[in-house]
């Protein structure tokens, strides 16, 4: 989640805008599952990513997307029978890229407190908001922990080279998974305890330090991107012959 002071951010958006657009992209992705229109939708997501100042994230996702496309195309060319089946399996994965990117943008550019406030503004029940916020908060910590776990394994001579992985797959799994799971359990407990001692269980209204407000940029982007996504979905449906 965002930890930056938004000073050089291209546009400071209300988290509700990002949440709504995430849902829009998610729904439209279901309609645009083929490679051509799906890629148009993905291009829209990339555009949004650049607008919100997350160009680097856009590049990472683009690289992944192209890799999947190349892999699938190769598979089909090399062995049409098996390749087509592989293409089918990967189709949903590829189609999910636009909403995944939107989710990543949401997580990376929104402060925890603002996200929680936005979710409450949407009347999401507390029972869902807290675990969601904790889960999202958990990931950067998990990444750090995993790095430490990998270090510890290297110290004991566990080799992460391809040869090493092939020779001792169980040691690799053990040395990575067991400490990570144990640490995760401990961290989750400590996080929860710290939150409880600061009143997170209180029912009723929760106030917000940064008051959420939809700016003109929010409305503009919300309307433009929603319209664009819907247009792409409609075009895709027409092209596939779904509508007359």
């Amino acid at each position: 989640m965002s930890d930056k002071a938004d000073s050089r951010l291209a546009l400071r958006l209300d988290p509700r805008t990002k949440i709504i657009l995430l849902v829009v992209f998610g729904i439209c992705a279901c309609f645009c599952r083929d490679a051509a229109w799906g890629s148009v939708l993905f291009a829209l997501a990339l555009l949004f990513s650049c607008i919100t100042g997350e160009a680097r994230l856009a590049v990472k996702f683009l690289v992944g997307y192209v890799a999947v496309l190349v892999f699938v195309t190769l598979a089909v060319t090399v062995n049409p029978e098996i390749g087509t089946r592989i293409a089918l399996i990967f189709q949903s994965f590829r189609a999910a890229f636009p909403p995944f990117l939107m989710a990543a943008i949401l997580i990376m550019t929104t402060k925890t407190g603002d996200l929680v406030a936005a979710l409450y503004a949407f009347r999401v029940p507390r029972l869902l908001v807290i675990p969601l916020a904790v889960g999202i908060r958990f990931f950067p910590t998990l990444v750090e922990e995993f790095r430490c776990v990998v270090d510890a394994a290297r110290l004991q001579g566990v080799s992460f080279s391809p040869a090493g992985v092939v020779r001792h797959p169980s040691t690799i799994c053990e040395s990575l998974i067991v400490p990570t799971v144990l640490r995760s359990a401990k961290i989750a407990e400590e996080l929860a305890a710290a939150a409880v001692t600061r009143g997170i269980e209180k029912p009723g209204e929760r106030t917000s330090f940064n008051e959420l407000a939809l700016s003109r940029a929010d409305i503009a982007l919300l309307l433009c991107f929603s319209a664009a996504c819907v247009a792409v979905s409609v075009a895709c449906s027409i092209a596939k012959g779904g509508w007359a």
Partner: peptide, 23 residues
């Protein structure tokens, strides 16, 4: 592991937000 928020300001006001202190 005692930070609920990922930004420091949010963390300092976290308790107050939970307890519904006025803006």
């Amino acid at each position: 592991t005692q930070f609920f928020n990922l930004d420091t300001t949010g963390e300092v006001v976290f308790g107050m937000e939970n307890l519904g202190v006025s803006h």
